[in-house]
Write a protein that binds this DNA or RNA. Structure first.
Ligand code: ZN
Ligand code: ZN
Ligand code: ZN
Ligand code: ZN
Lengths: 150, 150
DNA sequence: GAAGTTAATGAGATGCAGTATCATCAAGCG
DNA sequence: CGCTTGATGATACTGCATCTCATTAACTTC
């Protein structure tokens, strides 16, 4: 069970860009490596800070554009944290959900299958034709489950 | 089956404020009526526009404060639309979820019970202790289910 | 490898959502 | 009616995100 703690390799991001017909530019390569070096979720602002500290000369706009692009390709997913912040999580390009630790930010994937039945039930109940949904779960990872208030 | 389409009465909002010990001010009464007159979800910006058009003289800050207050009292719930916009939906003060029509914005409540089992299953799968979750469903209401692409 | 085409970049300006400040106002109360 | 204090709104401000556009560099073609 990996908590997105393990360092993700940068190549998948780069090759996915290539296969989709996008240019393999220096800023995009650098961002892929920065994302690969992250544990758990991260925000655009954090990437911006890191890029600045490392004097990579990557512009604000480029970072937002790259994040959008990765998200469109299904390599990142955008989360709305309970705090209201927008964060991103490295992601398999198939529909699934995330469980996020409120203490350390670690996250793990949950396969979508286990919610299919629920969605079907909700379609029946509501009469709506459901096209998409967002499910995000917040709690404490095994390491932090002991501490804190339930 | 109400789709939050029916005009919600303003009194519940006002009386809830009163019972919670908040002052029944003119701006809050006006906002309660504006919210009551809305169908489906709405944004802070929309309320702001309406207030300006009607020359109600309600300040930006007051609107945000009132929305926060109603949300704290469980009378509104804040949604993160797929577009990234933040919207609010009139709401019962118990935990539940929303199905939102992407065409007309109509929404209906879904009882939380039907996801309890799923959450338990996810706790088992992930090893996380889950404290909270957010589930929002998007699709088309019965009136709009026929049209559009699936 | 050089030249050309065009996507991509980055600096800065701009827009916009939400918050902080604080003097003024009015809701509730006796 | 007059007091007390929560509430208001004008203003300023912060910070995220987007837009513009001249310049750059990634890929293509030869
Ligand atoms: Zn943790
Ligand atoms: Zn899902
Ligand atoms: Zn509701
Ligand atoms: Zn509809």
């Amino acid at each position: 069970m990996q908590y997105h703690q393990a360092v993700v390799a940068a190549e998948p991001l780069v090759t996915a860009l290539d296969q989709a017909g996008y240019r393999l530019t220096q800023p995009r390569r650098a961002l892929a490596m920065m994302i690969a070096g992250r544990d758990g979720h991260f925000t655009a602002a954090e990437l911006l800070d890191e890029a600045r500290q490392r004097r990579l000369g990557i512009g604000r706009a480029t970072i937002f554009r790259a994040l959008d692009l990765f998200a469109d390709l299904g390599l990142l997913e955008r989360l709305d944290l309970p705090t209201g912040d927008h964060a991103y999580v490295p992601c398999e390009p198939v529909h699934h959900h995330h469980v996020v630790c409120s203490v350390c930010g670690a996250s793990t994937d949950v396969q979508a299958a286990c919610i299919q039945a629920t969605v079907a039930e909700i379609e029946r109940q509501s009469g709506f034709r459901i096209d998409s949904h967002r499910l995000e779960l917040y709690g404490r990872c095994p390491l932090h489950a002991a501490a804190g208030t339930p």
